[in-house]
Simulated assay, not measured.
Amino acid sequence: MTPDRESTDRAQSAVVGVAVLLAITVVGIGALTAAAGAVVEEGAAAAATARVADGVDDALDAGTVGETETTVRLSDGTLRTADRTVRVLNGSGVVRSVSAGAVVYESGGRRVSAVAGAVTTDPIGRSGGSSMSAPPSVAAANGTLYVGVPALNASGTDAVSARGAALPVTLRTAPTHERRVLPADRYRVAVETTAPDAWERGFRQRGATTSRRDFDGDGVPSVVAAFPGERTVHLVVHDLRLRMEVGA
């Protein structure tokens, strides 16, 4: 394979990753909206990324208030779901635990993960070097902590791999929403992630202090963000009921 072909394939893989992550992380509920349009790998063509984003935007025009269906063509790499948990804690321990899940796209030694409304990129097999291109749906203001959690609740195919040939992957969602208000207390939010550096920076930018903890002993740490003062928590869980299938 020539260097030009290799560069083109990396760009195509990156664009597919963007399309997939856009398709499952955009939440159209007021301020709890995950950012979109991330370039996930060096060499991705911005124009091609924009075209894919436009197509996905059409599929998500109704946000998460109705069923959506998006088909992307995976030309390289692996797309899979993974177990991830988001926890809300106070001084007594865990007060709310959400099985959020994650969609993970791996190609060329890089991993892109969509979990808890955020999109991160990190090198496979090496610590550090992670970045966040779409921020989490967590915000603190005026004595309130807003936490939005897209929960995949995935079914269908657990993993899809492609090497060269274009493989269509269809993503279907049929979302429902649960809103819960937790009384004023000193809260922490813990997100299980393979990109803890990026999550720590993201939480600190929102005024939190951070620590790490492996709650279930599976080797994947959670970044625990503590927000100052007592706050009322508005927790919104978006159950996407994602179904991933091979084929158009």
Rank of each mutant, 00 (worst) to 15 (best):
R163W: 15
D197N: 11
L242W: 01
A59F: 03
G207L: 13
D54H: 10
G109M: 06
V27W: 06
V147T: 00
G148Q: 05
Y146W: 01
R73A: 01
G229Q: 02
M132L: 15
V26L: 07
R212D: 12
T210K: 14
A38K: 03
S13Q: 09
L240P: 10
G217T: 15
D185I: 14
G55P: 04
T120H: 02
A184V: 14
T81D: 00
T210P: 15
G77A: 07
V65T: 04
A248D: 13
V39P: 03
V233W: 03
G43R: 02
R10Y: 10
A11C: 10
L32E: 09
T209C: 11
V94H: 10
V72M: 00
V246M: 03
R172F: 06
T144V: 15
R73D: 10
A116C: 10
V220C: 03
V246W: 03
V27I: 14
A166Q: 15
S113W: 05
R96V: 15
D218R: 04
G55R: 14
V103N: 07
T68I: 04
P183W: 02
A198P: 06
Y105H: 10
A248G: 00
G229E: 07
G66Q: 02
E106V: 04
L21P: 08
A35Q: 14
L145I: 04
V56W: 06
G30T: 05
V86N: 05
A53W: 06
L89D: 00
G109K: 01
R206H: 03
R80P: 02
V112D: 12
S127W: 11
T78Q: 09
V220R: 04
